[in-house]
Every structure is written in C-alpha cells, then in structure tokens.
Design a protein around this nucleic acid. Structure first.
Lengths: 216, 216
DNA sequence: ATAATGAGTGAGTGGTCACTCATTTTTCAA
DNA sequence: TTGAAAAATGAGTGACCACTCACTCATTAT
C-alpha cells in the first residue's frame, strides 16, 4: 500500500511560472498521492501533511480541491510537448543521415523512457480525465494533433527516401506506434525485459510490412 | 453530462447465478452511473433511485458500496471469457479452411465490436482497477494468460501453414494486436470510420511484415 | 520604534454520505 | 384465512471532509 514519494520539485520549478515554494510543494505532494489512491480518495489534509503546510494554505493557492487537478493538466501538457517535438526536430536537423527505422527507434526509446520517468505524474492525471470531458478534451486537442502532424512528416520523409510504401497512410502508422507504446507500457514493461531489443524486433517486422520494395 | 441508460438486465441474468431481480437491477444501475461519473463520485442514493429500490435494499444484497464493484469484476471476466475463447474455437473447428489473415480479421472485428457493445460496462469497471491492486491482479491473471495462450495457438497454426515467419514470437503478435485494439478503441473508433476497411488495411501491412516468404 | 501588511495557520463548520434499524409490506405454507 | 418469516423501506445517525475565518507573527515600510 505504501509507496515511496518521488520529488518533482526541481522539475516543477522549470514548468510552472510560480515562484512560490509552497505551491510547488503542494502540487508535488498531490501528484504523489493522486497516483497512489486517485483523486477522489485523496484528502486535502493528507496533501497538506505530505507537503508540510497547513491545510488552509492549500486553499490560499487553489480555490478548490478540483483546481489542483485542473492546474496539473496544462502542466502535463507542457511536460509532454517538448518531449514530443524535440526528437522530431532532431531528425529534421540530421535530415539525410538516418534511415526511417533508426529515427523511429530513437523516438520509441525516448517515448517509453518518458512514460517510465513520468509514470507517477501521468498516472495521477490521466485516469481522472476519463470522467471529466472538458479536461480530457483539453488534453486530446493539444497532444493528438501534434503527434499526428509529426508522424505525417516522418512518413512523407520515408516515402521520399523510398523506404515506405507510397500507399501507406500516416493514420495507420500512428495507430501502430501508439498501440505499441500503450501495450508495451501497460503490459510488456513490467518484467525486466530488454527494451531496445523489443523495439528493434517490433520495428524490423513493422518496417518489412510498410516498405514499398521487398527485401527478404 | 446526461447520458442515456443502457439495459444490461437480460444480459446480466445470463451471467449471474442470482435469481433476485432487485440485485440485478442494482448492478445494472451501478454500471450505468459508474461509467458516467466514476465509482467514488457515485452516491448509493443515486444507485437506489435509478434501480427503483430503496437505499436500504442495496445493503441487503451488498455489505458495502465497495462490494458492488468487487462483484462486477468476476462478472466482467465472465463476460469477456467466452468472447475470447469462442472465436478461437471456431478456428479450431474450421481448421484447414481459412488463412491466418482471415482468422485474425474475424477476431479483430469481433473484439472491437465487443468493446463497443460493452463499452459502458468496461468503462465502469476498468478505470477503478487502476488504484485497486488486488482487483486489477484478479482481472489480469484471468484474462491475459488466456489471450496469450490463444494467440500462441494461432501463431503456431500460421507457422505450420508457412504463412508466418518461423522466428516470429507470439509475444510480439499479442502486443501488436492488443495495441491495435486499444488505440483503435480509444482514438480511431470515435469518428464514423469503416472499421472493416481499417482492419483489412492494418492486417495487410502486418501480415506482409510477419510473413516468412516475400510476395510483393 | 512603531505601524502596516499579508502569508500562513488550524480549530471549527456546515453539509454530505455510507450505512443502520425500527417499522411496514410481501410472501407463502398450513 | 392466517400468521410467521422474509423482504423492503426510508428516516435517522455518526463519521468524515472540503472549505472558512479569526488570529498569529515575521517582514517590510514609515
């Protein structure tokens, strides 16, 4: 039942514009407890205790308990955005050097690492969005189109290099990539597997299917 | 905010051994409200109202509110089990007739249909398992090995027919299949897409990658 | 030295909610 | 028809919890 606490302190300082130490301590505590027991089962008293502040202090920074969660969503978006755009931008920089397979390898490694590193943060926010349509919508409309757009870029790049079938739709590729990341993070990653090997294996079969030419 | 109610009445009568009409009406109401607002935000009063019974009646059949959820998990397992085993058994019956691709097509069609048909049921139970390790474990240990075992069977069958690469691991196939179903149900299925076409498209590329021989 | 400020506090409050139980209604065997 | 047991009821209850507010006190301004 008892899990260790993770410290997002420094991390949060980079992503919030607040200078208040207390506010960050409150969010930090909330992330940890939400991820353990979920939003509804978490008591504001508990957040205060773990943050080392008085319960009243929470309500100086957040009008309601709900507001803590609402504040986390844009924060999660801000954390994920650069983790999505940076690797793709790396590709554009090293444009002609790499094969599409190598590009995807780097992206998948990075994405699975991100989910592991920020697992607690993601687990504290995402499950609560299921029954909160406005927050879910906020999240989806800022993250999904961005991913879509970047995947499209890579697919076009791969087609231009002749590495991908010209009829291949980027929607299908996105589906496959999201699917792999999802199922790997949910089921595959729990055991001590060799992630790099698993990704290579997945990509070799996927690329063979997606390639225009046939190299057996 | 307001969603229609679905009636699992008949459906539940097949899967519970209870003969009590009231108990089924309570579970039916609980499924609907849990799926709309989540377990913690649901009031027992509300369940009673929608079930058309008094609040006290709930506690004649369930010692606590938690027990309603706990009762749902084996129920969900019982619903999913035959939906997983039946299509595979169909394959074994029509053993030499179909190609692996056609078999998988039927399975994916069936699985995505199942998620759509039982979406409300699944949505009412699964999100609550995230922070309830014992229930999650109960669910995982009864569903996952079964899927694993059946996928393995099909992969062996495909290898024997020479349709699949002999080095292909069934773990990878399961990951891909789960991934497709997950991401399709979460993101792809919301728009009015042609599901059969999408599945065919996915399978054609996947099979091309997984095949031992090379037929361009 | 004194006053003003406001972040911080935590006991208190009003409302909510899961669960109880005394009472009423239904069931059904004799 | 009757009466005893079982089922159903819903007002009541105590515990709990998000949020409030009167007060403290360190810091800054005068």
């Amino acid at each position: 039942m008892k899990e260790d606490s993770y410290d997002f302190q420094e991390f949060l300082e980079d992503y919030t514009e607040t200078s208040s130490d207390k506010e960050i301590r409150i969010i930090n505590a909330a992330i940890n407890i939400f991820s353990e027991k979920g939003f509804e089962s978490t008591r504001t008293r508990e957040i205060a205790e773990r943050a080392g502040v008085a319960e009243g202090t929470i309500f100086r920074y957040f009008p309601t308990k709900d507001a803590i969660l609402e504040r986390m969503v844009p924060l999660l978006i801000r954390v994920m955005m650069p983790r999505i755009s940076e690797p793709i931008d790396r590709i554009i920089r090293a444009h002609e050097a790499d094969s599409v397979e190598d590009i995807w390898f780097d992206i998948l490694i990075d994405r699975i690492k991100m989910i592991r590193d920020n697992g607690r943060f993601i687990k504290s926010v995402l499950p609560e969005l299921i029954h909160r349509a406005p927050l879910l919508h906020q999240f989806q409309t800022s993250i999904l189109p961005m991913i879509e757009q970047y995947i499209e870029k890579i697919v076009e790049y791969g087609k231009a290099r002749g590495e991908l079938d010209s009829a291949l739709s980027s929607r299908l590729v996105m589906q496959q990539m999201l699917g792999f990341i999802l199922s790997y993070s949910m089921f595959g990653g729990s055991e001590k597997r060799n992630t790099e090997h698993d990704i290579r294996e997945f990509l070799q079969y996927a690329m063979k299917g997606w390639s225009g030419s046939c190299k057996p």
